[in-house]
Structure formats: C-alpha cells, structure tokens
Design a protein around this nucleic acid. Structure first.
Lengths: 274, 274
DNA sequence: TATAAAGGTGAATCCGCAC
DNA sequence: AGTGCGGATTCACCTTTAT
C-alpha cells in the first residue's frame, strides 16, 4: 500500500482506498485510537457487503428492509475490521445521528467491543427546525468503546477535569468532564479550502484526541474526509493514518495539512484556524 | 383481561401481566402514544425469547453473543407488538442508556417505525464518576418514533416553543424546543411511597405527554414501574394503560395514583410531588 | 474606530393549492 | 387521486447602517 500523501516526518499519511480493502491489509494490533464519522448510507442501493467486501447488487430486488439490512451489514463489517487493527487496550470513537448511530452501536456490541461512554455533542447554534413538526435537532451522538472487555484504556482524566475548555459553557472548572459537550460546529468561513459536508470542529477532535491518546500514539480515521482528526492528532504529536475513497476529500485534507505544517510553530493560533 | 387496578372514572388502568402476552391480546390501532423504559440487564442467562415468549435456557450454552442476540430479540419483539397497538399516526418514546438504546433504535427501524427525534436528557446533578476512567455519565437517550413512514403525528409545537419550562436552563424562551433537555432526576425524598430504581422525573414525562398527545388521547406504558407516565397522563386529561409483571411496582403505582387523585384539584402543587 | 442596532440571507421540510 | 409547484416556517449569522 502506497500512501496518497505522506508528510516529511512520516507522522501524517493519507490513503486513497476503499476502507474495507485498506483495513483488511493494514497492520493488526497497531492502532491506539480510531475516530470515525461513517457515511449514513440511507439505503440508496447499488452495493451490499458480503464477508467484508463490497458487492454491487441488482437494483431490482431493492426494498426498504433490504436497504436497512445492507446498511447494518456495512457498519458491522467496517467496525469488525477496525477492531483487528486496534491494540488490545485501543479505543474507537464513532459519531453519527439517529440515521446510523444505533446500527453502529449495536455493531460495536456484536463485534465484542466494550462501550465506555456515549457522548451527546450539543451544538448551541444549531439551525432551526423549519417544519414545526419536530424538536430541533441540535446534537450528534458519539460512542466511545474499547476493543477488549477487560483492558486498561487510555483516559487522561486530569486534563479532562482541570484543563481549559472555554469553548464549552457546560463544562464547569474543576469538575469532571461529563457526557454532554457544548461545542459549536465550524463556521462556514473556517472552511477556507473548500467545504466538506460533515466537517467536525477542531475543538471537538481536540478533546477526543487529548482524552484518549498519548503523545506518540497512532490514530486512524477510516472515513477521513477533510481530516480534521488528522490535523488535530498531528498538532498534538500523534501519528495519523487517514483513509478515504474520495480524491477530492484527500486533496482538501492535504491543503489543510500543509497550512498547518507551515504554521505549526504557532500552535495557539492554529487550533482556531484549521 | 381484567385490570389489576382501575380508577373510578376508568381513565387509569394497571395490568399485572407479562408485556408480551398483554400486547398480543390488547386492542390493535387504539393507542395514541407509548412511553417505554424497558429493562436492559437482560443477558444474565437463564432465559431467552422465542416468538415473543420467554423460555428458560440451558446455562451451559450461554455466552456473550447468545446473550446479546437474546437481548436484541427481546427488544425487537416488544417493539413490534407495540406497533400493532398504535394508531397509524401514533408515536412511541423509548428511553435508555447505551446498554440497550442501540438495540432499541435499530429495532424501531427494522420494525418499520419512522424515527422523528432522538433526545438527550441531560441530568445537571448527575452523580460523579468514581473510577476516574470514564467521562461522567450524565444523560440518557430518548427516541421518539412514529408508527408509519408517512402520517401526521401529534406535536404541540406552540406549547413546546412558548410554554413555561423553568426546570430547564437550556430552554430559551420563545425559541424552539431542542433535542437536549436539562432536567434533574427525582430527589430521593420525592419517592415517598417507596423507591423504584429507574423512576423518571415528572417534569420529563410532562414534556413528553404534552408534546405528543392531546387531551382525551390514550397513553400506554408496557413497563410501567411506578407509573410516573400514568400519573402525568392522568393529570393532564389523558387515558392511561400501564403494564408490569411486578406486583410490588403496581402496588407502588396505586399508592402514588391515589395520592394524586385525592389532591387533583390542586394541580400546581401536585406536579412537583408525585 | 469601535460597538450596536437593523436588515437581509439561507437551510430543510411540510402543506396547500392548482392541475 | 396523484403530481408538482410555491409559500411558510425559524434562527443564527453575516452585512449594512447608525451611533
């Protein structure tokens, strides 16, 4: 496997690949933490997953239950493959809304992970509900799980408790970090190199990376998109491996990374810009 | 089916029964809203679920995946049975933590419900995490779903938007009700007639009942416990049907209901006492 | 020049109306 | 009765204008 992009120091690598094929070949028991924001699928048809391999499918026999089963199968498979790449004490984060998160959560349980926490990421400035028929969707769910039922995972308790978290009005100083995080999504002007539909705020990834990894650890993102995970991981001295099957996303990732690398001596300013 | 307890006006009924057997016999297409807080520590071995019926099982062939599959089957079955009892526009609320909520959420999708919202119920005064190995669990998840893919469900938008919600510091006046609700769990002194381990605060059920039902509607709770759902539903003029297989829980429900009925002329005071 | 107020824009979904 | 179009809805944010 040849990286699509690799930083000079080798700590930041991007692969242009199908996540399934990539994960089957990737080193086992080598990753400390995975962050993943998987596609929703939403049962569009066109392919299914058998034995961890994508297979195109006849559109004719496509119905809702078929689509649902296929979506679930998709998630179960990439989640199983991720588990193989994790070290025994390694952990995985999965983010999603109700479209996919229940399938991912149940998949984690089936695949043998131990769920450590579920986090509600509250977006204080979420867009209003225009139909007036529902509550205003203003959060996403994050699940944090460990590969093995029994193992000592990394959790930087002191930093989470006593660190500085001015972006989160729900985090009280000198109190434990709780399972609700109030963090605004990125403003549109922050996406200066191009827009990625599900780009996550750096403050969110900063918290995830600092909570669940140590300096020098390896972080993997199998649906890396514009690579906010990777930028934050690199900035804080972690190694990063990002995978995506979309070339445009990786090109956007590279632009963002090179901006970061050029200014890394000024860490304080960077975190709000990347 | 004879009720274990029925109020004089017939608007509040409790049944001592296995929820599966009860739901199979209960009127179809008759319920406007279901609230359910299902049990989740199911995988202890000793029984399994086949076709909606509990069957004891040889402890010998009990492993984790067997237990997980059994739990999922349990949830899928009661959720399917609930769907039959709902009117086409009827909705269901399910509450839970990560132990069970992913299985319930995926079951809802498989059973053909349309998920309307997921709600994070934030408990500002949640107990601290003593291990220092995790984030402090301070919320539960609620899923709101409609029986049919296309139908006009009840949502009292104006009341949710403009009503008075002093118990929730996250609810801004004259703004839409959002998917994060800050509501404290009941204090122990509120459980004056006896403790029920998963008793929900009346403020939470009040919001659920007022949001998704109208006066005169029928509300069902298949795991009714100490019947907070029923007390709130009755107080606001809804009909209630509660089911539980635990006699002690129903006896506790009756005590709470009779206290409520004796003081119903003073609604303001009651809501904080029941 | 900085801050405040006012005004305009955009997002996703539902609903009514015309055909 | 099914289809399709257009209006209505709300809130945060951005731009413009006023102090």
């Amino acid at each position: 496997m040849k990286p699509y992009y690799e930083s000079k120091d080798g700590r930041f690598k991007l692969y242009l690949a199908d996540s399934f094929e990539f994960l089957r070949d990737f080193s086992k028991n080598s990753v400390d933490m995975i962050f993943s924001d998987p596609p929703y699928m939403l049962s569009n048809g066109g392919f299914t997953v058998h034995a961890g391999r994508r297979v195109s499918v006849n559109k004719g026999d496509w119905d809702k239950s078929h689509g649902l089963y296929n979506d679930f199968n998709f998630h179960l498979n990439w989640i199983k493959l991720c588990r193989e790449s994790l070290k025994p004490h390694g952990t995985i984060w999965i983010s999603g809304t109700y479209h996919s998160i229940y399938q991912c959560g149940y998949s984690l349980q089936l695949a043998g992970y131990k769920i450590l926490n579920d986090i509600a990421w509250y977006k204080p400035n979420a867009a209003p509900n225009l139909s007036g028929r529902y509550f205003t969707a203003s959060h996403e769910t994050l699940i944090w799980a460990r590969k093995e039922e029994k193992a000592r995972h990394i959790f930087n308790y002191g930093l989470m408790r006593n660190g500085s978290w001015p972006e989160d009005f729900l985090k009280k100083p000198d109190k434990q970090m709780r399972s609700i995080w109030a963090i605004n999504p990125p403003r549109s002007w922050e996406k200066k190199f191009g827009k990625h539909p599900t780009q996550k705020p750096t403050d969110l990834l900063k918290r995830i990376v600092l909570a669940s990894t140590n300096r020098g650890n390896t972080v993997l993102d199998p649906f890396t998109g514009s690579s906010t995970t990777g930028l934050v991981a690199y900035l804080y001295g972690r190694k990063f491996v990002g995978v995506d099957n979309d070339r445009a996303s990786l090109d956007l990732s590279i632009k963002r990374f090179e901006e970061l690398a050029a200014n890394i001596n000024n860490k304080q300013k960077i975190i709000t810009k990347i």
